[in-house]
């Protein structure tokens, strides 16, 4: 026994070099990947039908950029509608009033229970069954009337389709966020004389935001891609625009690559923003003083 202990602690052994564990699997994987990348690059370079020159040429083409702008506008406006209406629906769903709860639950059931494509087409074709939208006494005289088709433009139909559908999903996200706030917070607010609206605005929603914001960032990224469905109502956003172009020149793949590049650029930007927000939020939860620890390697 005594000799073993002496051996393991002997200074000569302490200086022995360490042989790191080998990972042969990694080498195999790297070789396979290298071959695949080489094949892909050679495919890109040796397939003239791909027309990479067209991809480059159309990337900043005027109508493509206009389509890109429309895609961004659709995303922003539809998300604003979704978040605002979703918050209202979530509050209705949690209210004491049974009628409000039923209305909100029905809304969510209908808009989550039917395909978004159908909803888009529905708003677009509403004018065919309801030619005029009028304001007046129910079942009584009309005060004001406009043609449905002038009010519900392509853009408005896309916003209604995407935004109202989004509201149903946001309602669930906001509800989960509100549910995550401790009951004691509401009691403390009430005990201070805060009414229901003030309690929501100053106490519940700011705390629920920690839970609401990260999944909402995900929703923004999916909304960006969902806007391509506006193709079915002919709204010239990014996908519709490239479709119109390849309808004329039959260069489908190069133009779809153009659209994909722009979608990837936008989702990458959004992902970076999302990561930033999540880091800020988690810092708030820990609530420790904002102090950055700098790790230094090699003692420097």
């Amino acid at each position: 026994m005594a000799t073993t202990v002496e051996q393991t602690t002997a200074p000569a052994h302490a200086d022995e070099p360490i042989v790191p564990l080998r990972h042969p699997g990694r080498w195999v994987a790297a070789v396979v990947l290298a071959v695949l990348v080489a094949m892909f690059v050679s495919f890109l370079l040796t397939t003239p039908q791909l027309r990479l020159d067209l991809v480059v040429g159309y990337l900043f083409e005027r109508s493509v950029l206009r389509g890109l702008l429309t895609t961004i506008e659709l995303t922003v406006v539809a998300m604003l509608v979704g978040v605002a209406l979703g918050t209202v629906l979530a509050i209705m769903r949690l209210s004491d009033n049974p009628l409000l709860r039923i209305v909100a639950a029905t809304y969510v059931a209908v808009f989550r229970g039917t395909p978004i494509l159908v909803q888009l087409l529905f708003w677009f074709f509403l004018g065919t069954v309801l030619p005029n939208i009028s304001l007046g006494v129910p079942f009584g005289p009309e005060l004001f009337s406009v043609s449905t088709n002038t009010v519900i433009s392509q853009f408005a139909a896309a916003i209604l389709g995407l935004g109202l559908n989004e509201a149903a999903y946001m309602a669930e996200i906001v509800r989960a966020g509100i549910g995550s706030v401790d009951r004691g917070q509401v009691e403390a607010a009430h005990a201070l004389g805060m009414g229901p609206a003030l309690t929501y605005r100053r106490v519940i929603l700011p705390q629920a935001a920690r839970v609401i914001v990260p999944p909402t960032a995900n929703e923004v990224i999916s909304m960006l891609k969902l806007t391509s469905l506006a193709l079915v109502i002919g709204l010239p956003e990014l996908t519709t625009t490239v479709q119109l172009i390849y309808g004329r020149n039959f260069q489908q793949i190069p133009l779809l690559i153009v659209a994909s590049i722009w979608y990837l650029v936008l989702t990458t930007v959004l992902t970076v923003i999302q990561a930033r927000i999540e880091r800020r939020m988690s810092r708030g939860v820990l609530s420790s003083p904002v102090r950055r620890t700098r790790f230094s390697f090699g003692g420097r």
């Binding site: 401790d182 004691g184 917070q185 403390a188 607010a189 201070l192 004389g193 106490v203 708030g284 609530s287």
Partner: peptide
């Protein structure tokens, strides 16, 4: 809510607003 302004309450678990 208005009537509660006259009455202050302190809870076992503090219930301070964490944000």
């Amino acid at each position: 809510a208005t009537a509660r302004r006259d009455v202050g309450m302190v809870f076992q678990r503090f219930n301070l607003f964490p944000h």
